[in-house]
Amino acid sequence: AAHVPEMTYRQLSCDDLETQQAAQVAVDYINSHLLHGYKHTLNQIDQVKVWPRRPFGEVFELEIDTLETTCHVLDPTPVANCTVRQLAEHAVEGDCDVRLLRQDGQFSVTFAKCDSSPDSAEDVRKVCPDCPLLAPLNDSRVVHAVEAALAAFNAQNNGSYFQLVEISRAQLVPLPVSTRVEFAVAATDCVAIQVTDAAKCNMLPEKQYGFCKATVTENLGQEEVAVTCTVFQRQPVVPQPQPDGLVSIASTSAPVDPPASASPPASPPAAPMVVGPMV
């Protein structure tokens, strides 16, 4: 039998230009396939192995660490323009295994799996002893704050009625007693000021998403709601691309079932198309 040499991988430096190019393609792929939460940006390349691939090409096997940004996945802002969530805000890390095929100098992702986890309470306390930690998204105070904020937004809104897509972040602030929330919304076919039964409203076929930040404060038995929403430009109706790999993002934060199905963002626009903030 002819001697078949054992297949061995090529070792590259994690800071090598080739490795960084592969990692950037991986992060862009991950962000374009995220259905919930926030876009992530590359923080560190942990490991890289490059395998020869028959009949031609190479397979890059990468382990990368990412950090959550402040841009929601429905926000069309390119991730390069998004701010990284700071430690004092309770940062969230992503840990990803990715495989990419390089043929003719072009990378394509064949597999991606990520786990995300918030920074530890101890680490947050080290940099900011009084900063609020992330709260479970299904906490009753969080859900109430989102409902109150969305109602306040719709009450001030002359256009479409916006419905909740997902609660993406929440913090319970001890003093003054308040709840900080962030959530994604979508325009419906109802007019905000005419809505009597929100359950009858349907999301527009040409999706129009928004992202809201709100603080609901208890003040002498009264509730004060401050909400700011940014509404993004409409996303054209396009057939959903079939996955060419596997992306699985698991979060340790308590997940919340979105009341309406959130479609993944259509092909990400090249330029930010932000309209607003509205209220």
Binding site: C14, Q20, L42, Q44, D46, L67, V92
Partner: peptide
């Protein structure tokens, strides 16, 4: 360190993990 005669000098291994761009969580 002084390499002894006949000893193969250790190859410089690629550095991993790479640089941290923001901060370590």
């Amino acid at each position: 360190p002084v390499a002894k005669p006949g000893m193969v000098a250790a190859a410089v291994l690629p550095s991993c993990p790479g640089r941290i761009r923001y901060f370590k969580v």
